[in-house]
Amino acid sequence: MTTYDNSEANGMGMNERGALLDFPGADELATAGLVEPLSERALARVLAEVEAAVATEGTVATGGARGAEGAAGAKAGVAAVVPLRRISGRRRALIALLTTAAVATGVVTYANTGATPAGTGTHSGARANTAAVFLDDISTVAASQSASSGKYWKMRTTVGDEYISQSMDEYVVNSGKAAKKGQHPDWQFGPKDLDWKGLEQLTTDPAQLLALLQTPPRPKSISPFDQAASLLTESPAGPKLRAGLFKAMAGLKGVKLVGQVKDSTGRGGTAVEFAEATSVGRVIVDPKTSAILEYTFTWTAGPSKGKVTYHTVLSAGFTDKIG
């Protein structure tokens, strides 16, 4: 996604600020904003409250506030959440509920904690294969979803609503206002660049998809894993194609099962990841629907080491109108 604006990084932000404040009386206005500084006592009080909250959170399950899921979509990158004081009791109840539901419906969970009890050494061969096993299973889940269509592919994300039209125009809706963002870049897939139409014509056969992904990379190619992940996360690919993509992903060397994780909004899912020389891409999959809850890209070396980019999809689907 390219919704940001680089002028800040170029140091233009402050000059621009000066230019915008170039009107008669601007200095007076600035002076009128002077206030007494925050007292030491007040700062100490705030610090104590935050430290208490930090300490409390350590004792409950990790994961973002559930409340963030709904609220985060409303504002660009800024979440309004349930005040922390009210969370822990509710969250405990919620976790209990989710656990019960998982047991009751017999949802299969995958873990790769390495904590297999001693004496089950025969499992080690099977464990090495768990990413493939999980991806094959999830492929079946993907294939069982019902097909649909519409004029736009809509994604509700933590940074606003995004729409892609059949002609690859991209729109973003923030705070109720629609803005055209330009063309959505075609999806890279091996030797091809796919637009909406190209996606519809793409094979759904796992072996052919894998072969395409494994063609030698073009300059500026993203990894085969990321190519498959972006189609699964942010394209209108139908159930058959998604099922084929999960199976093809299972055939890629180096894809690892991470196991049960929570995404940045606190939703649970199963993560698989793929490491490149200087970065790791990870997808968190909802095992019940095969939807990608979140894609994260982390630099593991180089000047940006440690930086993480999140793409969190709260919901996605076809629609015929924007807004």
């Binding site: 919704t3 940001y4 800040e8 705030v46 409250e49 935050v50 909250a53 930090v54 959170e57 973002g64 506030a65 409340g67 963030a68 985060a72 660009a76 990158g77 800024v78 979440a79 309004a80 959440v81 349930v82 005040p83 922390l84 004081r85 969370i87 933590t158 940074v159 940045s264 909004t265 930086k307 993480v308 980019t309 999140y310």
Partner: peptide, 16 residues
């Protein structure tokens, strides 16, 4: 601060 702490995972340095 309490809300920022609760929502800290929604911060994305790439966005600002």
């Amino acid at each position: 601060w309490l809300q920022a702490f609760a929502a800290r995972r929604t911060f994305d340095p790439a966005r600002g």
